[in-house]
Amino acid sequence: MNSIEVKNLKRIYRATIGVIRRTVKEVIAVDDISFEIKEGELFGLLGPNGAGKTTTVKVLATLLIPNAGEVKVNGLDVVKDANEVRKHIGFIFGGERGLYWRLSGVDNLRYFASLYHVDPEVSKKRIPYLLELVGLKGRGNERVQGYSRGMKQRLHVARTLLHDPDILFLDEPTIGLDPVGAREFREVIRDLQSEKKTILLTTHYMFEADSLCDRVAVIDKGLIVAMDTPSALKRHVSDLSVVEVETFGVAPKVVDQIRELSFVDAVSVRDQGQRQLILVQTPLGAEAVPAVMSALNGMRVGRVTVREPTLEDAYVRLVGGKE
């Protein structure tokens, strides 16, 4: 049975520009996308910034009205039955906002428990249980403004679970967390998955999607460009190898020259402070290294490696190597 059904969803943002001559500018955030999520499934939505991930989640969370299409949660329409939908869902938007910083963690939870109509007797037991579940036991009576970013994110999870929803929307929940915090958070997501919650996770981090998701949709410029299991998506690039070249101060023009090489399928650059890691997808494997080095034309180069493709490489290929 499907918990979530999205059919031909389209969402446009309109902005008015100018004071005297007012013109309306339209941006298509989501353009005719369709997907379904089965009950108990952990579904990933991957895509670059501005691809339409958050817009999709906000439509599902009843916070935006779609311009076209049909969106159902547990068989309920998110526009007509918004209030009923809200009883079944919980959501987290990445970042630290969305909590009352001048209140304690417990007061934040008491407040939202009441807004979700959780019986006071139930919430008295549930709040300590959730604080323990998210690793905030003993810190609940402190003001949220003193919490670390990771603690705030975990309090968000506790807030989301107060009314024990069947469906969770997690929009880039690990963004900005340190590696340890992000790993702990992924453990929380795994626990939720084991409780058979239906989860829609949006993320930038491919390894996160790879390790957590049952299925993944790659979204770019408002369109779904691929949808499959992580292992099936990786097969999209099974004919390729990835040449990684560590450089220091590479110019965009040089990256474009590499992209123009006939045997290159996709190129992406990952900034690492002073260094940049150029990732070249090619069917030639190690044989491509001399030509790539030649394109770098005597530039200072660090480590050079050739490896098997990952889900991230499949993603780069699907979204056109822009990341």
Binding site: L63, F93, G98, L115, Y116, R159
Partner: peptide
């Protein structure tokens, strides 16, 4: 500003009650 307006609108309690 605090990012809590969306959370309040998305609860089953009508906003006017809040």
């Amino acid at each position: 500003r605090e990012g809590t307006l969306e959370s309040l609108v998305a609860v089953p309690t009508p906003f006017e009650v809040i």
